[in-house]
Design a protein around this nucleic acid. Sequence first.
DNA 1: ATTTGACTTAGAGTGGACTCTAAGTGCTAA
DNA 2: TTAGCACTTAGAGTCCACTCTAAGTCAAAT
Lengths: 137, 137
Amino acid sequence: MKKYSIGEFANQVGLTTYTLRYYEKKHLIIPQRDANDRRYYTDDDIKWIGFLLHLKGTGMSMNEITEYVKLRAAGDSSIPKRKQLLKDVQARSLSQIEEMKVHLGVLSKKIDWYDGKLKHTISESFGDYLKRLRSKE
Amino acid sequence: MKKYSIGEFANQVGLTTYTLRYYEKKHLIIPQRDANDRRYYTDDDIKWIGFLLHLKGTGMSMNEITEYVKLRAAGDSSIPKRKQLLKDVQARSLSQIEEMKVHLGVLSKKIDWYDGKLKHTISESFGDYLKRLRSKE
DNA sequence: ATTTGACTTAGAGTGGACTCTAAGTGCTAA
DNA sequence: TTAGCACTTAGAGTCCACTCTAAGTCAAAT
């Protein structure tokens, strides 16, 4: 299996070597070492960093991903917990998208207003928005 | 028109007084002052902070909102620029949502895999994802 | 008259996610 | 053999968006 130096690996996955070392500090990805104590990464690491970036892209924090890594290291017995963690992330991510769409709706109205298609303000929806926020708590 | 102290206003809009003073430092909202030099906010400020939070919710940074405030202060001549700024934000926000959906798709597959519905890893899509990322630059 | 409580300021501290620097090691090519 | 280059480390610096502290002011209630 091919071995990648940190520089090659960084190029492959579109991160900097700084970031990879930072992720290592955070225990997100631990490469192996050669005889000279230099890091090398494998295709498995490419797969993992790929998934990691998808997780990050759903809004998971580094700490949450670290938590996932810990669970994974604990073996198959942690599968239910891992699954639940991902489901929570999924739910949060979906509601973030819905939230974003609400904000985008207001933004669109304002753009329309700038287009001269509307004369009044967008602010009357804000009261509803606050109520919605509070009802979530 | 009703006047709100910073504490009242903070309650109304769901922010802390700290945050309101911080926004003021950043020139995002400048309340008026009474005879004792205490801040007071009005219903117009409630409208503005409402819109500001919607802007923030679309992913605009504080600096971008400051930019918008500056344009607004420059008068009607800046309307085309303001409209363009909001359109750019809108486009970026929409593509962030699309991006998020891609990540969510991968997450869903992984959850299905944990559910025992799928047999292999999600990583084969990562190569495509990287290509897509690069083609955007 | 004093205490309470909400306000005022400048400036320090926090947490997240990087991003970089400095000093040093070790292979490779001229 | 020396110059260049990619690597190594610990730790410092950056940017963002808050969040809080300390010291002080002022009006109202006890």
